[in-house]
C-alpha cells in the first residue's frame, strides 16, 4: 500500500470553491469508493471518486483546508500521490429504478454511479440534488447528458429548482413508486439519516455513504470504527445498505475526531 504517483491531466472549475481534478491513471474503481490523496509536506486525506473511465479518474474537491488549498494551486502536469481505491461501492444493477439523493458534494459519487448504471438495460434514475443555493448545485450539466435520468433540483433559498429539502421530493417519489426502487444517497449525515428514516418508513432498499475520520484507509488504525459494531467504515463502508445502517447506533448522532473524541451532530 504505497502511494502511487499520478499526474493531473485536466482541471474543471465546478463553482468558485469546487474543482474536479482528473488524474491519468487506470484506478479500477467503482462508484462509492475513495482514494487517499497525498501532497508531500502537506497532508493526505480521503476523497470520494467522482469519475473513472479506465484512463483517468476524477476527484471533485471543495477547498476547505491546507491540503485542498495546495491542490487548488496545482496545474495540469503536476503530480500527487494516490493510494486506493478503498472501501465498498454502490450496487450496480440492471432493471432497477434508482432514486439518488445527493446533498452538496454528495453529487460527485452519485453522478459517477449514474454514468455506470445508465448503460445497463432497464435502468431509470430519479436524481434528487440539493444545495443551499443555485451556485452550489453540482453537476447539473453533466447529469443532463445521462439517458433515462430525471433531475429534481432543490435549493434552500429557492434560487434554483424547488425550494425545500431533498427529502420532500424523496417522500413523494417513494409514495408514488410503482416498482421497488433502490434509494442511494450521499451527503451530509443528517440528510442521509432522514433518507434512511424514509426508506424504513416506505420499506425501500437503500444504500448510504458514511463519512468518518480516516487515517489509513485500509482497516488498521481503527479511527473510523462505528458504535456498537466496531466495523471500520474504510473496509465495511463507506457504502452500507439499509440493514447495516440501521445497526450503526451512532449514525446521525455523533462521529469522532482525530483524537477519537465523540463530536455530536
Amino acid at each position: 500500500m504505497l502511494p502511487k504517483t499520478v499526474k493531473i491531466s485536466k482541471i474543471i472549475d465546478e463553482n468558485p470553491s469546487v474543482k474536479t481534478f482528473y488524474f491519468s491513471h487506470n484506478l479500477k474503481s467503482k462508484p462509492g469508493q475513495f482514494v487517499m490523496l497525498w501532497l508531500p509536506d502537506i497532508d493526505q486525506k480521503p476523497f470520494s471518486i467522482s469519475s473513472d473511465d479506465g484512463e483517468n479518474f476524477g476527484l471533485t474537491v471543495f477547498k476547505r483546508g491546507p491540503l485542498t488549498e495546495k491542490l487548488f494551486t496545482l496545474k495540469v502536469g503536476d503530480r500527487a500521490g494516490s493510494t486506493g481505491p478503498f472501501g465498498t461501492c454502490y450496487s450496480i444493477l440492471p432493471n432497477r429504478h434508482y432514486i439518488m439523493v445527493a446533498g452538496g458534494y454528495g453529487a460527485a459519487p452519485l453522478s459517477f454511479l449514474s454514468t455506470k448504471i445508465c448503460e445497463l438495460p432497464g435502468v431509470t434514475i430519479d436524481f434528487i440534488v440539493g444545495a443551499r443555493s443555485k451556485d452550489l448545485l453540482l453537476f447539473e450539466d453533466r447529469l443532463k447528458l445521462i439517458p433515462h435520468l430525471k433531475i429534481h433540483a432543490t435549493t434552500d433559498d429557492g434560487s434554483a429548482g424547488r425550494k425545500g429539502r431533498v427529502t420532500d421530493v424523496l417522500e413523494e417519489l417513494l409514495k408514488n413508486a410503482t416498482s421497488k426502487p433502490l434509494v442511494v444517497t450521499c451527503g451530509p449525515e443528517l440528510m442521509e439519516k432522514a433518507v434512511l428514516d424514509l426508506c424504513n418508513k416506505y420499506d425501500s432498499d437503500c444504500e448510504l455513504s458514511i463519512e468518518r475520520q480516516m487515517k489509513c484507509g485500509f482497516g488498521i488504525c481503527g479511527q473510523c470504527a462505528v458504535d456498537d459494531l466496531g466495523l471500520c467504515m474504510c473496509i465495511d463502508g463507506p457504502v452500507v445498505n439499509r440493514a447495516l445502517a440501521n445497526r450503526i447506533f451512532e449514525l446521525g448522532k455523533y462521529h469522532r475526531d482525530k483524537a477519537g473524541n465523540k463530536i455530536n451532530y
Partner: peptide, 23 residues
C-alpha cells in the same frame, strides 16, 4: 491497531483474539 474505541476492541475478540490492548 484497531484499538481506538471499545466497540472496535470487542469486534477483534469476535474475530478470534483471546484478549485486547487499547491504543
Amino acid at each position: 491497531i484497531l484499538g481506538v474505541t471499545g466497540a472496535s476492541l470487542a469486534h477483534m475478540v469476535e474475530n478470534g483474539c483471546g484478549g485486547v490492548t487499547t491504543k
